[in-house]
Structure formats: structure tokens, C-alpha cells
Design a protein around this nucleic acid. Structure first.
Length: 276
DNA sequence: CTGGGGACGGGGCCC
DNA sequence: TGGGCCCCGTCCCCA
């Protein structure tokens, strides 16, 4: 993943892929039920501590509404009802294809802020420490772990990494070099944006908007070469590959090209032309 | 089996 | 610093 260089993947665990089944249970998530993210940044601990029951889930701040599968947490205020979508499918542009975004405030205040604190948990014995060094010392002395052992999740920090800011997600074992990146990542766990139609939850408002297009059938991204249109720009991009004689992904063993990386992977894993 | 579409997650960039 | 958008990538499903 060349683009994910900010993520220090020590465990190469797969990214959370929210399948329908998972999301069905996710839709009724209870924000305060999420564990706390742990950040080895004592400086900003107090500033980051806030209520996990973020008031953005409802206009009135009533948390129980967050349990509703139709809480439009990330939807802009809608005079047309909960399914107020862009009614201009052809507007389609890349920037602001949905004018009623209502500005940039459609994205709710990040609830993850309330999940951040500077407590260092040893995941081998659940002890907590107030500093990284204390935790590290504990792990070395009590669990015979090397100081830089990427043990369990979140709190065991490689020494070379600990020398610079590292922000850990407690929901998984990812680390980030910036708080903003971590907060953004945590949204993928908290999924604050809920589809008012089906209750499916998403990490970001624009993901929800894209999802809503699956309900409305809006396809703002049209192919210039054929009559097809897509709800997702990435899908259009992939489709455009099909119009190209020489496709983007080349097999290293034969001269075949593929429109998608996944097809190339399939091609390779199926044996391709010997070399594998 | 292959190709393609649908859906969506994640990080970077820009404002 | 945070939000929105873009691009890349992946997984699933279907023809």
C-alpha cells in the first residue's frame, strides 16, 4: 500500500472491511461503548478528553437517537426530508457535486476525540501506566518483551517510533504520525455517519453520500466513451480502463494488461505464464 | 475462469 | 487544524 505510508503496519492485519453483516450490527452502535483510544501524548490529553456521547448525533444532543438506524448524523440539514439528496444527477462534478453539502459542517464533530486519552495499557496483563516509558519498562521486566516489541495493540511502541509522535488506535493496532490521521482513522471504527434509509454507517460524510446514491440511483459520473454512468468516480475510472486497449496493470510475465489490479492479481494467482 | 461493475475504505492534498 | 474531495485500492458479486 504505497499510499498508506503514514500507517505503521506492524501486524499487516487486514483493513477493517465493513461487510453488510458487520454493518447491520454496527448501525446501532453505542458511541460510549467503544474503548478508549490510547495516545502516548500526555501533552494533549486533557484537551482531547471529551464526551464520547457526541451531541452531533442528534440535533438536540440526545444520545439515544444515535441508536436509531436512521439517524442522519452526517447528513446536512434537509428541508426535503431524510433522503434529501442532490437532485441534480448531472451536476456530477468532482468538486461539490452535491451542493447541499451545506458547507463543510455536514461532517459531525468527531466523536473519537472522546476516545483519546493518554493511558498506556499493557495488553498482556491489562495494567495501565501513565507514561510510555513506564509501560515499556513493565513489558520488558514483566513480560520479557523487547522494548520495541510491537506487542498486541496500540500501546507497545517500537523504540525508534516512540522517539517521535505516534498515535495509536485502540480499536486496532494501527499507528499514525499525526493526531488528525488517527482521528480520521478512528472514524472508521465509530462510523458516525448513518444512512437514513438503510441505517448503514460510514466513517465519513462523503462516503455516506456516495452510499446514498445507491438508494437514489444517482449516477453523476458519466463515461465519455459510452452511455454508462456511475455513482462512484473510482468506478468510472476503472470503467474507462475498459475502453483503453492498453490497460493500466501489466502482467510482468506476459504481455497482458488488465483494467484492475484485482484482475492482474487473479491472473497471477491463477498461474499466469508459468513464472509463478 | 475472466472481465467488469458496485460499493466502499483509507490516506493525501487542498482549502 | 479540520473538513471535503480525489485518487488508489480492495472485496464481492454477477454475467
Amino acid at each position: 500500500m504505497p499510499r498508506s505510508f503514514l500507517v505503521k503496519k506492524y501486524f499487516s492485519n487486514k483493513k477493517p472491511y465493513y461487510r453488510e453483516s458487520q454493518l447491520e450490527s454496527q448501525t446501532a452502535f453505542v458511541p460510549e461503548s467503544f474503548p478508549l483510544a490510547e495516545l502516548p501524548t500526555q501533552n494533549n490529553a486533557s484537551a482531547l478528553t471529551c464526551h464520547p456521547s457526541s451531541p452531533f448525533f442528534t440535533s438536540s444532543g440526545a444520545l439515544p437517537a444515535a441508536l436509531s438506524p436512521v439517524t442522519p448524523g452526517c447528513l446536512p440539514p434537509s428541508p426535503l426530508g431524510p433522503l434529501n439528496l442532490s437532485s441534480s444527477p448531472s451536476s456530477s462534478s468532482s468538486s461539490g457535486d452535491e451542493e447541499e453539502d451545506g458547507g463543510r459542517t455536514s461532517d459531525p464533530p468527531s466523536p473519537e476525540a472522546g476516545e483519546i486519552q493518554s493511558i498506556f495499557h499493557c495488553l498482556h496483563c491489562s495494567k495501565t501506566y501513565g507514561s510510555l516509558s513506564a509501560l515499556s519498562h513493565h513489558q520488558v521486566s514483566s513480560h520479557q518483551l523487547p522494548p520495541n516489541a510491537p506487542s498486541s495493540q496500540a500501546t507497545s511502541i517500537p523504540s525508534e517510533v516512540s522517539q517521535r509522535p505516534a498515535f495509536h488506535c485502540k480499536h486496532c493496532s494501527k499507528e499514525y504520525t499525526s493526531l488528525g490521521a488517527l482521528k480520521m482513522h478512528i472514524r472508521s471504527h465509530t462510523l458516525p455517519c448513518v444512512c437514513p434509509t438503510c441505517g448503514k454507517a460510514f466513517s465519513r460524510p462523503w462516503l455516506l453520500r456516495g452510499h446514498i446514491r445507491t438508494h437514489t440511483g444517482e449516477r453523476p459520473f458519466a463515461c465519455q466513451h459510452c452511455n454508462r454512468a456511475f455513482a462512484d468516480r473510482s468506478n468510472l475510472r476503472a470503467h474507462l480502463q475498459t475502453h483503453s486497449e492498453v490497460k493500466k496493470y501489466h502482467c510482468g510475465s506476459c504481455s497482458r494488461t488488465f483494467s484492475r489490479m484485482s484482475l492482474l492479481h487473479k491472473h497471477n494467482s491463477s498461474g499466469c505464464c508459468t513464472s509463478l
